[in-house]
Amino acid sequence: MLLLALDTATPAVTVALHDGEAVLASSSQVDARRHGELLLPAVDRVLKEAGLTLDTVTGVVVGVGPGPYTGLRVGLVTAAAFSSALGVPVHGLCTLDGLAYASGIDEPFAVATDARRKEVYWARYEDSRTRVTDAAVDRPAEIAERLAGLPVVGAGARLYPEAFPDARDPEHQSAAALAALAAEKLAAGGEGFLDPLPLYLRRPDAQVPKNYKVVTPK
């Protein structure tokens, strides 16, 4: 097994190689504005560090979000193109699940990432492997009560300390955690992956124009 994992749903552009036993190499850069520029060079770097080439990869793991759209699409289309060019499967995972897995927390908690527009993407977990709600997007104040007393993992927690006073690590997504989670799932029979389709959780901003603007001066 050789998994190439990548996630661009958060400000982190993160890539990792996993052979089913351990992470062979990984790269994470936090730069919310340059996903497109950073991803492929990171893939190249990780492969070179491991002394491997892309055609030895047996599967691609991708974080499907939720996340801001433009960055999210970079990872998803890259994973889909690798899959098509190499003839290997793509395994989709919820980006929040990667953060949850990396936290290693063994009690109920939540994950929250920055959704901009004063909102967070979030979900609740029973433990680091078990998500108990669908990912959602809300204003911190609207969910603070429901998550009261729970540790909250991810950058969304740090951004809104009033709503989430018990912020926990990690702050950023890592493809290494995503790859390890995928390897675990594959070893257990390959259940529980998502289709590699984006979780936007919001409709596109678009308004139907009411009427054309009259140009005749009143």
Binding site: G36, L40, L54, T70, R73, V74, T78, A85
Partner: peptide, 19 residues
């Protein structure tokens, strides 16, 4: 359109690299 271009550019890079 920046966001639209990025989908094509990302796909092209991935294919070019993979092949």
């Amino acid at each position: 359109l920046a966001g639209a271009l990025l989908v094509g550019v990302s796909a092209a890079k991935a294919y070019a690299y993979a092949l």
